[in-house]
């Protein structure tokens, strides 16, 4: 599904990603962990097509197609979804109108008609119930004045609406209380299938108890310095990153 080869990216001539290799197959869950500032969000943004970052070397393939030249919206149309670490507030645009626009623009790009209004409403109802989101919420301005946890839950609601092939969840667990974490994780699990894939970026083992990864990668200083199975996450929780940094130096 996703193949990243020797990816280097920089912003304002400052190199942030320094040779990432990663392969994600359909049906898999990958966790990316790593110290603050190691480049996790940058990697997520580069995959999603943020123009601020310049890819200086390497390539990103989605289903064997190089997506380097595609705009962010075109990548979204191909099924990439990024749940933001810091979702952006958009005053004046309601959650519902935003979702309608996102869905219908995606359909338009695929040559489909707009989704009929009643179908849209039904879908909104189902997905908001699944994530236990109060309907009053949906008529509010997108993310404006939402609490940290509400923003994250809203990100997963959008993911549920858009049904992506590849979802990247950037610290979706931060800001969620214990109940919300369970609800959101269950939501993600319900959306999982053998045809799609998830990359979870997190600092904590806790989320991975719910969304169980097939692989865990440690990103440090712009490189994946260690990969393993879910046991690696337990080890990190216990021992921190110092031992890995030592390994890298050695």
């Amino acid at each position: 599904m996703l193949k990243i080869n020797n990816l280097h990216a920089s912003v304002e001539d400052k190199a942030i990603l320094k040779g990432i290799n990663l392969e994600v197959k359909p049906g898999e869950v990958h966790a990316i962990m790593g110290p603050n500032g190691s480049g996790k969000s940058t990697l997520a943004s580069v995959i999603a097509g943020k123009e601020e970052y310049e890819v200086t070397q390497g390539e990103i393939l989605l289903e064997n197609e190089n997506i380097d030249e595609l705009a962010a919206e075109e990548r979204a149309h191909k099924g990439i979804f990024l749940s933001f670490q810091y979702p952006v507030e958009i005053p004046g645009v309601s959650v519902t109108n935003f979702m309608k626009t996102a869905i219908n623009e995606t359909r338009k790009a695929k040559g489909l008609e707009d989704m009929p209004a009643n179908e849209m409403l039904k879908m909104i109802r189902e997905k908001s119930e699944m994530l236990e989101i109060d309907r009053k919420f949906l008529s509010r301005s997108l993310n404006e004045g939402f609490s940290g946890g509400e923003k994250k839950r809203n990100e997963i609601f959008q993911m549920a609406m858009l049904e992506p092939k590849l979802a990247i969840l950037d610290e979706t667990d931060s800001g969620l209380d214990i109940d919300a974490l369970r609800i959101v994780a269950n939501g993600v699990n319900k959306l999982k299938s053998k045809d799609n894939a998830v990359i979870v970026i997190t600092h904590y083992q806790r989320l991975l108890d719910y969304i169980v990864p097939d692989y865990v990668h440690v990103l440090h200083n712009g490189r994946i310095v260690k990969s393993g199975t879910k046991e690696l996450a337990h080890e990190l929780e216990e021992k921190g990153y110092d031992w890995i940094k030592e390994e890298v130096k050695a």
């Binding site: 990439i80 996102a102 858009l162």
Partner: peptide, 12 residues
């Protein structure tokens, strides 16, 4: 905000 919206499939 532009990147946020575009990453959800809304064209520029």
């Amino acid at each position: 905000a532009m990147f946020y919206m575009r990453s959800r499939g809304i064209p520029e």
